[in-house]
Design a protein around this nucleic acid. Sequence first.
DNA 1: TTGTATGCGTTATCAT
DNA 2: ATGATAACGCATACAA
Lengths: 333, 333
Amino acid sequence: MATIKDIAQAAGVSLATVSRVINNGPKVGKDTRQRVKLIMEEMGYRPNANARALVTKRSASLGVVLAELHDPFFAMLAHGVETVTRKNNVQILLSAGSIEKETELRAIEILLEHRVEAMVVHSKALDDKTLIDFSKQVPGFVLINRFIPEIANRCVWLDNVTGGRLMAEHAINQGHKKLAVISSQYRIDDPNHRLEGIVNATEAAKLTLPESMIEYATPDQEGGELAMQNLLATGAEFTAVLAYNDAMASGAMTMLQDHGIAVPEQVSVMGYDDVLLAKYCRPKLTTLRYPIEMMAAKAAELALKYAAGAKPEEGLTFKYTPTIVKRDSVVRV
Amino acid sequence: MATIKDIAQAAGVSLATVSRVINNGPKVGKDTRQRVKLIMEEMGYRPNANARALVTKRSASLGVVLAELHDPFFAMLAHGVETVTRKNNVQILLSAGSIEKETELRAIEILLEHRVEAMVVHSKALDDKTLIDFSKQVPGFVLINRFIPEIANRCVWLDNVTGGRLMAEHAINQGHKKLAVISSQYRIDDPNHRLEGIVNATEAAKLTLPESMIEYATPDQEGGELAMQNLLATGAEFTAVLAYNDAMASGAMTMLQDHGIAVPEQVSVMGYDDVLLAKYCRPKLTTLRYPIEMMAAKAAELALKYAAGAKPEEGLTFKYTPTIVKRDSVVRV
DNA sequence: TTGTATGCGTTATCAT
DNA sequence: ATGATAACGCATACAA
């Protein structure tokens, strides 16, 4: 592949001049610029991003750490990031961390080795201290879906406690008194927080939510089916089910319908996330909107801004609150 | 950030020695190795991938060009690639090309500038010649979802003509004689090929498929709804609908149900792709399995192999054929 | 306006 | 086993 040197030689000018042409530098004759450009075209010259990054110490790239790409949720996240990187002519470097400590760590390290300027990190397995340390090394370090007080101004996150509360309140407002909960079996913050919000709301409404009305399973459709199966097996009575996410809600609905229980006529179901699926499934899912795409875009902007030298404001954080999307899976009782 | 030089200084050895330690070079004393490693640890040393890429001319990265990240289909594609890059300690560089000539071109160029070793490209807007040219520049250049005879051995693609035929044949075998088709309005190869297969099958079965029974819309749920609405508005009669993809099929089902037409009792519906949605929607979609994740993994492997110097075998290509997944949206009539 | 020279962080070649 | 040194491709301060 042709280098700047080859171009200089072919054009009969110096390296510096070519470099200036490439970067639209100011001090270069109009005709020389023309000629050099032509030759670059002819020789199919492409600047070497690595060499450039080495000397300028700026890589024009943003690293993204996420769990699993095939999860639609992370696809939305990635897309949110992409909208802003594209606008800024910044490249995306992807690193998957599958919610395992070692992998997440390695994912971040790899991005660091590539000297990405900014970083949007979705980490659930790493501890606060590790993340705080990284944020000190990388000016453009931003966390998504996580809140760490010490670096609050680098956190773009969803208030899941409020989310849980909103879910439960909505069900309660619709007259439901016997609630069941289908949660994720992974003991990370998100399910804990959502559950906390649900419990708060039930207590405030003087309802009881016995442990037996809470089922845990994998946070996907199969998990939702399984959890509902278990719930039904215990013979428990409930008129509304609050699921950890839309996939579990969908699974739960399927299982209910398979048992001849009409949704929402006999049992109401609520999801969380508002992914595509929520609109596609029948009945359409009443759920909580998790504006992950918007949040991811925000995180990317922030990361780029910090990377460019902006100082994170003290005492600031980027908290989003989910909102209820009323569709057809919940009815008044 | 500490460099190899800093480490050398701190350890009282030369650059060369440190470099050897980093790369697990052979000729270095056991104790020196220990000491250097310790110091690297202490100083938080991280090799600079850019510098390394510059001198070794190998970037340990694979570029991916795809259309839209938030499309679950591309999320699967990305995931397929990721499974093999992870295994090979190769980094993913993402570039979105939104099915526009200019953007796709720019996406590839950017990856080229980063000197990615391998490339998995999903391009629909670029012409054959351009792609062939690129493949000559980049040894590890592989196309996914596209077939170009001149570089057949770099193409991992799905036989959409056969796919279309299988769809139609399945419907016909189930006794359906009046078919309707919902296709994509984008005049790229995929819908054309699928339609071609459908037409072939209908002709072989001595059925007619008038142009009025084919509706075109955007390849998403809204498009499916719209297309079905149009179809119903014309008063056309049909007992089976073949959709361009699962999203359109889902939209079509919704619209049918909204019009009080039972699926599959009154009208059967078939999708294409077998994305998550196909299992989630009600009735579960009978569709064609498009093993995109597997294909993407194959493409990535191939790209890496070619990048490593393996010569593309002449006359070879990587064609996949979709298979029918029978679920609940099609019945015998 | 143009050219020269230096250095970015690393690997690799050649000495020692 | 270890060190000195020349690249790699580019940007840039300094000269001319």
